[in-house]
């Protein structure tokens, strides 16, 4: 009996941290660290960095779940989440979020003050600027969500090098430019839900056609900035070729969605964009280790 209650508790808290999204952001942070070309000599540091980033990203995600609980309640897709369904109380979720965030950010400061500042900025932009302040006011809030999403890769590289450099910012820019593709395809798929919840999105403010154009442009921008990042890192041409192949797929789908729009292509683009980012990070990591 105790075990099943405990298991259920763990499962509910696990849902609070959106493990896939947290995992992808953590991977960008690891990629940023690995580009510093020191993963073998500083393996312990890599582990601690991963722990710190995982805790702080998971913590900020849990805070967002608390902030967005009323939105979640009005959407069919999210109504069964732990908070809107009442399976966790706000107090429990807040305590969990605060514990994770403070442990993650605290550890980050212990590892390197600069890393701590960057991790804190990621938390601040995500929870305060994006979720609390702008998400319900303007569709442009995604820019700040993008800035928050760019922080793990910038901070990972900063921890490895001891400073923020232009390559780190470039890699961060690629995440920032990729995020509109990720978020806008999603907000198009769940357009009705966002309308019902009163959240301003690009499709509701600027229409679907313009949103698709923004998606195509942001896909192009993300691909270009990763490519420049790979060149700046001095990785071999093979990695650039592979990135080019993945980017052609992304742009092809974005353009197809622009000229032959359908819900199926739109959601396919959403999935492909995630694979593109995952692939880009793996390319950067393997290339940097090679």
């Amino acid at each position: 009996m105790m075990t099943s209650v405990f298991k259920e508790r763990v499962a509910l808290h696990w849902q609070l941290i959106k493990p896939l999204q947290t995992g992808l952001l953590l991977l960008t942070g690891i990629a940023g660290f690995v580009t510093g070309r020191c993963p073998v000599s500083k393996f312990g540091l890599l582990l601690l960095m991963s722990l710190s980033l995982a805790l702080s990203i998971a913590g900020s995600t849990a805070f967002n779940m608390v902030i967005d609980r009323d939105i979640d309640l009005s959407m069919g897709r999210t109504v069964r989440r732990p908070l809107p369904s009442g399976r966790l109380t706000i107090k429990q979720a807040l305590a969990f979020a605060a514990l994770l965030s403070s442990a993650g950010i605290g550890l980050a400061f212990l590892l390197l003050p600069l890393f701590g500042v960057l991790v804190f900025l990621g938390f601040f932009f995500d929870v305060v600027v994006y979720s609390l302040w702008l998400k319900r006011r303007t569709p442009w809030s995604i820019i700040w969500g993008g800035v928050a999403g760019a922080m793990p890769i910038i901070s990972g590289r900063a921890l490895a090098l001891g400073r923020v450099d232009y390559i780190g910012l470039l890699l961060g820019l690629s995440i920032l430019l990729w995020i509109p593709t990720h978020i806008l395809t999603f907000s198009m798929k769940y357009y009705e839900d966002y309308q019902r919840a009163g959240i301003p999105t690009f499709p509701s403010t600027y229409g679907f056609s313009r949103t698709r154009l923004v998606i195509a442009l942001s896909s192009l921008g993300a691909a270009i900035s990763v490519a420049i990042g790979i060149l700046a890192l001095g990785l071999s041409w093979g990695y650039l070729r592979l990135l080019g192949v993945l980017a052609v797929g992304l742009l092809g789908l974005a353009l197809y969605s622009l000229f032959r729009p359908s819900e199926r292509v739109n959601f396919g683009l959403f999935k492909y964009a995630s694979i593109f980012m995952l692939g880009s990070m793996l390319i950067i990591m393997v290339g940097s280790l090679g």
Binding site: R241, L242, G244, V245, L246, V248, G249, G252, L253, R264, G268, K271, Y272, I275
Partner: peptide
């Protein structure tokens, strides 16, 4: 091989 990479991913998705 590039077409095969993208084809594999698109077949997985669609």
């Amino acid at each position: 091989f590039g077409v095969l990479v993208v084809a594999g991913l698109l077949l997985l998705i669609f």
